[in-house]
Simulated assay, not measured.
Amino acid sequence: MKIGYARVSTKDQNLEMQIEALGRNGCTKIFQETKSAVKERPELEKMLEHTREGDVVVVWKLDRLGRSLKHLIDMVSGFRDKGVEFISLNDRIDTTTVQGRLTFNIFASFAEFERELIRE
């Protein structure tokens, strides 16, 4: 099952564009959030509880899901541990493909490198 997650930061912003794109890409369930990424996100928590092995989480853009690159990598790694794949439509990342996994792993390597530099 393809599960969508759409988020805007304020109530003044509109989710419609994201919801339409997720629907066009086969999402049968879409969790909608109107909260800043730094606060609690109850719809994200519901989505995480809802996902099962074989599902695919789809977002319109990477920044709709993660607060930072590290947070995003941790989330997608958690998906992988559950047997859940990930697609970011605008960033053209699709972990159901070899190229998508490579792209995401490159991002993860850069984030790890950044953390190690900071630690030094």
Rank of each mutant, 00 (worst) to 15 (best):
F107P: 02
F107C: 11
E85W: 04
L102Q: 03
Q99M: 14
F113Y: 13
E85N: 13
R7Y: 02
V58I: 14
K11A: 11
G83M: 02
A108R: 12
D63Q: 09
D63F: 11
K11F: 05
C27E: 01
R52C: 07
F113V: 14
T103R: 12
I93S: 02
I106N: 07
A37R: 07
V84P: 01
F104V: 03
T103P: 01
L22M: 02
E20C: 03
A111N: 12
Q18Y: 00
Q32A: 13
Q32N: 14
I93M: 04
D91W: 05
A108L: 06
R119N: 09
R115Q: 06
R7W: 08
I3L: 13
T103L: 13
R67V: 13
D94Y: 05
T51C: 14
S9T: 10
Q99C: 09
M47S: 08
G26Q: 03
L69M: 14
Y5F: 14
R92Q: 14
R24H: 10
G4N: 02
T28I: 10
T28C: 04
L72F: 04
F104L: 13
Q32R: 12
R64V: 03
S77R: 10
R7F: 01
L15M: 10
K2P: 10
F79N: 04
E20P: 03
N25P: 05
G83C: 04
K61V: 06
Q13N: 04
L62I: 15
I87D: 01
F110H: 04
L69F: 12
H50Y: 15
R80A: 11
L62H: 13
R80K: 15
S68R: 08
I87V: 15
R101P: 05
T103A: 13
F107K: 12
D55Q: 02
G100V: 08
I30C: 11
E53R: 11
V8G: 05
T10E: 12
Q99P: 02
Q99Y: 09
S36T: 10
H71A: 09
R92N: 14
I19P: 00
T95W: 03
L44R: 13
A6V: 00
F79S: 03
Q13I: 09
D12K: 11
V58P: 01
L22D: 00
I93F: 04
S77K: 15
I106R: 06
S68G: 08
I106D: 07
W60S: 01
V38R: 13
